[in-house]
């Protein structure tokens, strides 16, 4: 059994140091790793990134993160990534990592993702260059997620988790205004997850959404935005042994 702790949208700033550390210090008691689902800062400044870095530096469990749209706002995502990596965080964008948890190989594939909407109510790659690029950006992100998940499969991972900031499904957006769904996620991410296969998909971004959802292919999805889970993190236990099918 693998215990995956996850939280997103912690939006740390100058008034945040120490807010989450007491809870994070208890992680070894209840989890094997911590996933951070983006929007770790408010504006994506190096100063805010340092607050996040100090909050997770030296934790006794591996920490794997993707950035969110807020972490891009100051247009220095590489710098934010570097500051987090210096603190020991594995920051993913279109790639994957394998964490060894007491002999179980846990693969995490991560990308920020982007919007576009969901089947039948989505943006199309058509018209103005800006509109086409909007959809292509999401498609590239989804393609990289699929490639990373497939690679983790080839590397013999026992468990695979898809980590994004934007949502792959509309289920976990319930509570948000319908009109803004296209800005909260894209079915292309779910299609990538279902095509490559995964045991769990974790995302943030939708503060007013719902925790539980599922892709069309049956992969469980969890919205771990801190305002949704109302905790420092949530923990999901994944079985690693094949359970014989009933009947």
């Amino acid at each position: 059994m693998i215990r995956v702790a996850a939280v997103g949208d912690i939006h740390m700033g100058p008034d945040s140091p120490g807010l989450l550390r007491p809870a994070f210090d208890t992680l070894p008691d209840c989890a094997d790793l911590l996933l951070l689902a983006g929007d770790l800062t408010r504006h994506g400044t190096p100063e805010e990134a340092r607050v996040v870095a100090d909050e997770v530096r030296g934790l006794a469990v591996p920490v794997v993160a993707v950035l969110g749209n807020h972490d891009h706002h100051d247009e220095q995502p590489e710098k934010v990534t570097g500051i987090l990596r210096e603190a020991g965080v594995t920051v993913l964008e279109g790639d994957g990592t394998v964490v060894d948890c007491a002999g179980t190989r846990v693969g995490i594939a991560g990308t920020k993702g982007f919007g576009g909407g969901f089947v039948g109510r989505c943006a199309g790659e058509f018209g103005e260059p800006l509109m086409k690029e909007f959809v292509r950006y999401t498609r590239r992100s989804a393609d990289s997620l699929r490639g990373a998940l497939e690679d983790l499969g080839r590397r013999g991972c026992d468990v695979r988790v898809a980590l994004t900031h934007f949502s792959p499904v509309p289920d976990t957006l319930a509570g948000e205004p319908l009109e803004i769904y296209p800005f909260l996620g894209s079915y292309l991410l779910a299609e990538a997850i279902d095509t490559a296969g995964a045991d769990l998909a974790v995302h943030g971004h939708a503060h007013a959404g719902t925790e539980h959802g599922m892709t069309a292919g049956g992969v469980r999805v969890r919205n771990v935005a801190q305002p949704v889970i109302r905790r420092a993190f949530n923990v999901y236990q994944l079985q690693t042994e094949q359970v014989p099918a009933a009947g």
């Binding site: 912690i10 208890t26 209840c30 989890a31 469980r220 109302r230 420092a232 923990v235 236990q237």
Partner: peptide, 15 residues
């Protein structure tokens, strides 16, 4: 307006 809660969870979800 609610301030985000920062306590650890009291249980895990079994998937």
């Amino acid at each position: 307006l609610v301030v985000a809660e920062t306590t650890r969870p009291d249980h895990a979800e079994e998937l």
